[in-house]
Design a protein around this nucleic acid. Structure first.
Lengths: 256, 256
DNA sequence: CGTATAGTTGATTAGTATCAACGCTAGTGG
DNA sequence: CCACTAGCGTTGATACTAATCAACTATACG
C-alpha cells in the first residue's frame, strides 16, 4: 500500500536532506484515493494517466526538508499521506509557518523566481512529485489541468488572506480557536471525523503558525480545556467538545 | 485623457455605492500605458483588442466601495489610475487590510464562492472592469491570458505569505520599515521615483494593513524621522532618506 | 475664517513575550 | 521489562511592546 522506504539513512538527518529519493513507482492506491481531492481530480482517466506518467513518489521521514525558500523551483508536489509545514525564516531565526498541509494538498507552485518558502515534513509523509517542465507542457495540452491548479492557487490566496486577518487582528484565544476549527473542517473534507482531530505538529509549530509563543499556545489550550471547549485526550489529538463556543471565540465573543 | 465623471452623486456616499457606473468607453490612453504591467500585457495587438472588447471603465471617487466581501464574484478589475485597498472585516468592526493596489494591479479574482474581501478606493481612482463569463470564455481561447492571470495569482500568493511573516513575527518598527520599502519598490516598478513616494492612504489604513493602531504607526513614523531614515515633506508623501537603514530595520537589525 | 477630521504626543494599561522551573511522555539501553 | 534520559509541554513570575485612553495640534474643506 505504501511505497517502500527510500534508500537513505534515517539515523543521519543531514544525509536525509541531501536528496529527494527519486523513486519511479507504479501508481499507488493512496494516491488514487487522494486523486479525488488533489489537483489531479476532474481529469479523465486518460488525462490522469498522462499526468501520472510525469510524477514520482517518495516516503519521507519526519523533519525532512524537501526544499528551502529561494531554491530554484523545479517540481510541484502533492501530499499523499502525512503532514507538511511550509515556512519562512528571518535572518535572526524568527519563523512564520505559512501553512500546514495534509493528504490531497498541493505545494511548490512558484512562477518567476525560486520557492517562496521552505517545505518540511511534520511526520513521516508520502508525497508525489511532478517535474515543472513536464507539468508545464502538460498544462498546455490539458487546459482542464491548468484551470484546476489555477483555482487551487486562488483558494490558497483566499486562505492566506484569511490568515492575515488572524495574524493582524485576532487575540491569542481567537487565534487558537480559529486554528482548531479550521483543522477540524479540513479533516472532515478529507473524510475524517470532525472531532477527535489529529494534531501532529508541535506547540512550537502551532505558535509559529499563529504568531504566538509556545507558552501562550500552551496556556490558551489549557484555558479552552477549562472552558469545556476542547479536550486533549492524548498527545497529538484534540477533541472539539463545543464547536459553537469555539466559533464564538474565534470571532471575538470572548466569554473571558 | 481621463474618462468623464460618471453620473452619480458625490455628495451622498450611500448613493455613490449603489451602482458601479457602467460606462462603455473607447480604450483610453491611461489603460494603454497600464497595459504593460497589467494582466493584459504580453498579448498580441489582436488579442489585446479582443480583451478590450469585454471591458468597461469607470472613474470612481475616494472611499467608493466597488464590491464587498461575500458578494457574488461577477467581474475582475484592473486599476488604471489611483489607489485601492482590499480588506476583510470581523463582526465587531476590526479590520485587516489585505493589500493596497496601484495602477496596473488586478483584483477581484474569486473562484468558487464570492469575493474574499471588500474593495474600496483610497483616492479618486480609475478602474477597468471585465465580465467574469466573458473573461472565462476568452481565457479558453487565449491560453496566454490564462497563464498570465495564473502567474499573477501565484505572485499575489507569495506577497500574502510575505505579509504573513510581517504580521506574525515583525515588530512595529520592522513592519513600518518593510511597508515603506515595499511601497517604494512598487512605485519604481510603475516607473515612478523610488524616493519621494506617494502615501495616499490614511494612518488608519496603514495601521489596519500592518496589524497596528493609528497611534503606533504615527509614533513609529516620528521615530524613523528622528533616526534620519525618512522625511515627511507633505501629507501624503514620504521620502526615504536612508534605504540601507530601512532595510536593516525591516529585517530586525534594530538600532534602537 | 471656522469647523471637522486626521495626525501627533503623552500617560497608563493590558496582553503577550520572556525567563525560569517543573512534570510528563516517549524513546533508549540495560 | 523497567529505569533512565532527553525533549516537549505546562505552569508561574516578571518584563516589555503595543494598545488604550486622553489631550492637543495641524490640515483640509466649506
Amino acid at each position: 500500500m505504501v511505497v517502500p522506504m527510500p534508500p537513505f539513512d534515517f539515523g543521519d538527518p543531514k544525509a536525509a536532506e541531501r536528496d529527494f529519493p527519486d523513486i519511479q513507482s507504479p501508481p499507488c492506491r493512496t494516491c488514487d484515493v487522494v486523486r479525488e481531492i488533489a489537483f489531479c481530480a476532474d481529469l479523465g482517466g486518460d488525462d490522469f494517466r498522462r499526468l501520472a506518467s510525469v510524477r514520482c513518489h517518495a516516503q519521507l521521514p519526519a523533519g525532512f526538508t524537501i526544499f528551502r525558500e529561494g531554491d530554484a523551483a523545479e517540481h510541484v508536489y502533492s501530499v499523499s499521506r502525512g503532514a507538511m509545514k511550509l515556512y519562512k525564516l528571518m535572518s535572526d531565526g524568527r519563523r512564520q509557518i505559512i501553512g500546514f498541509l495534509f493528504a490531497g494538498d498541493m505545494f511548490g507552485l512558484a512562477f518567476d523566481s525560486g520557492y517562496a518558502y521552505t517545505a518540511e515534513t511534520v511526520i513521516p509523509t508520502q508525497v508525489c512529485r511532478f517535474g515543472y517542465r513536464k507539468l508545464d507542457m502538460l498544462m498546455d495540452e490539458l487546459p482542464q489541468l491548468e484551470r484546476r491548479i489555477f483555482a487551487k492557487a486562488v483558494r490558497d490566496l483566499a486562505a492566506a488572506q484569511e490568515q492575515m486577518l488572524l495574524l493582524g487582528r485576532k487575540t491569542a484565544k481567537e487565534k487558537v480557536a480559529t486554528f482548531l476549527l479550521t483543522l477540524s473542517q479540513r479533516a472532515q473534507q478529507r473524510g475524517l471525523p470532525a472531532s477527535p482531530v489529529g494534531l501532529p505538529m508541535s506547540r512550537a509549530d502551532i505558535a509559529d503558525y499563529l504568531g504566538l509563543t509556545i507558552e501562550t499556545v500552551s496556556r490558551t489550550f489549557t484555558q479552552l480545556r477549562r472552558d469545556g471547549a476542547i479536550e486533549l485526550p492524548a498527545t497529538g489529538h484534540v477533541a472539539l467538545l463545543d464547536v459553537v463556543m469555539l466559533e464564538a471565540l474565534a470571532e471575538g465573543a470572548d466569554c473571558h
